[in-house]
């Protein structure tokens, strides 16, 4: 099954299916060198000045394209971005030369306090201006395009004046950013906030999507929670297949952050994504 996954391309551009790489799997990845297209890590975990984790990431970077995925920049905060955080991100980007750099459409800081959580934004003109301004600043400082990811939402805001796809489309138009489309997050938010996931996906500007995320969620009964602690749900695989049929193949990533399973399980999930993409290639041909 793994042989179906496109082999690592060291030029730096993620291609095909990849996995979110967590500490427990670094040594195994370096020893086995499985045929995955790329790996993604959380940027903040490598903001340090040295030591083993950074060293291992350097080693992985010698074998695989790497994507840096930030969880703490707080693009959507009404307050200014943390300059030290940005400086550390720039230093890491300079060191790793990642194929992709991404952040979330969310906020996590207010009044100088960090909640360290991906919190939802109201889809308003004011929020749009704030995020666009911060994106301009980040892309300027890093000297490259970054991708913005839709999050899982558990509440929305009465003051929202546009849909999230409309918000993201306008963000792309204003800043030239790309999109990281998390299909599981669309599924979870659609369930929780009672909108149609397929309508959402159809309204996303196809050409802007440079990466796709897939992960597992938990069903609490009335609400779904984005736990990153299970296999991708069948309904999410179905949405993913429809999305790939519309967009064509895009670098697709399996994320798993809680109750992390053996590496082989992650590779099998990635292989599944690769099969879906190959199927879409066949249709396109």
């Amino acid at each position: 099954m793994n042989a179906r996954i496109p082999c690592a391309d060291r030029t730096g551009a993620p291609i095909g299916a990849g996995i979110g790489l967590r500490t427990c799997h670094f040594r195994e990845i370096l020893r086995q060198r499985p045929a995955i297209g790329w790996v993604e890590v959380h940027s903040e975990n490598y903001f340090c000045d040295g030591g083993q984790p950074l060293h291992l990431l350097d080693k992985v970077r010698e074998c695989y394209p790497v994507s840096l995925h930030g969880v703490g920049l707080s693009l959507g905060s009404a307050e200014p971005l943390d300059r030290e955080h940005l400086a550390r991100l720039r230093r890491l980007v300079g060191r790793i030369e990642p194929g992709l750099v991404s952040e979330h459409l969310s906020w996590s800081m207010a009044g100088g306090r960090h909640l360290n959580e991906l919190l939802p934004l109201p889809c308003t003109d004011e929020a749009l201006a704030v995020v666009a301004g911060h994106l301009d600043q980040v892309q300027d400082i890093l000297g490259r395009q970054i991708l913005v990811e839709n999050i899982s939402s558990y509440v929305g805001f009465q003051q929202s004046s546009m849909t999230e796809p409309a918000f993201l489309s306008e963000l792309v138009a204003r800043t030239g950013c790309g999109l990281l489309l998390d299909v599981n997050n669309v599924y979870v938010s659609a369930h929780n906030l009672d909108f149609d996931a397929r309508e959402y996906l159809a309204a996303i500007p196809a050409e802007a999507v440079a990466e796709i995320h897939l992960a597992g969620h938990a069903n609490l009964g009335r609400m779904l929670v984005d736990t990153h602690g299970a296999a991708v749900a069948p309904a999410v695989w179905a949405l993913y297949a429809e999305t790939i049929a519309r967009l064509g193949p895009r670098p697709s990533l399996i994320e798993w952050d809680n109750d992390i399973p053996p590496l082989a399980v992650l590779l099998a999930e990635a292989a599944h994504a690769a099969v879906v993409m190959e199927g879409a290639d066949g249709i396109a041909a």
């Binding site: 707080s74 955080h85 800081m109 100088g112 960090h114 360290n116």
Partner: peptide, 10 residues
Amino acid sequence: PSRCGDLNRF
């Protein structure tokens, strides 16, 4: 309170 977007420093 947490003062940093990097939870590792909390």
